[in-house]
């Protein structure tokens, strides 16, 4: 879909902007990642507010995570999460075998080090969405084999 392309271009440009303004200032990689993540967080809050406007109330934490994996992921990333695992003690691993926002990155191993830049905003999206549903968490992501991606959600009590 064309407007998907527009978002991808915007997302890329946001990443470039954050890193470019870091060059001029004193920000290192970690701060850039945080900045991107925080932007995603605010967007996630808004998206989840819109998206849960017409849904029934969630039963519990697992209910919320399933919603994130199915409805939220489909609307934002065009597909469902392929695999959800949990230790039932507050850690969830969400596996997306073809993560949409990694399209822009070539598959070569040398690009793997740049993957975190392309995942930071999305981690924020998830964390923001969960936060607005009353679930405090830490969300990280890693890529082992492109374009598959694992998001780890650690619920904070």
């Amino acid at each position: 879909m064309a407007d998907e392309a527009l978002f991808q271009f915007l997302h890329n440009e946001v990443i470039q902007y954050v890193y470019k303004s870091a060059e001029n200032g004193e920000m290192e990689n970690g701060r850039c990642i945080t900045r991107l993540e925080n932007m995603g967080f605010r967007v996630g809050q808004g998206l989840i507010e819109r998206f849960t406007k017409d849904t029934a109330r969630f039963k519990d934490e697992l209910d919320i995570m399933k919603f994130i994996c199915k409805d939220f992921w489909t609307s934002v990333f065009k597909k469902q999460i392929d695999n959800l695992r949990t230790n039932h003690q507050g850690i969830y691993v969400l596996q997306d075998n073809k993560f949409r926002l990694l399209n822009q990155l070539s598959a070569g191993k040398q690009y793997l080090e740049h993957a975190p830049k392309y995942l930071a905003f999305s981690c924020g999206l998830v964390r923001g969405g969960l936060s607005n549903l009353g679930v405090k968490s830490i969300v990280t992501a890693e890529v082992s084999v492109m374009p598959a991606c694992k998001f780890q959600v650690m619920i904070q009590k």
């Binding site: 406007k53 849904t55 549903l133």
Partner: peptide, 9 residues
């Protein structure tokens, strides 16, 4: 008095 709660509490 009437009440309503969103999913965002």
């Amino acid at each position: 008095v009437y009440g309503y709660v969103t999913n965002s509490k």
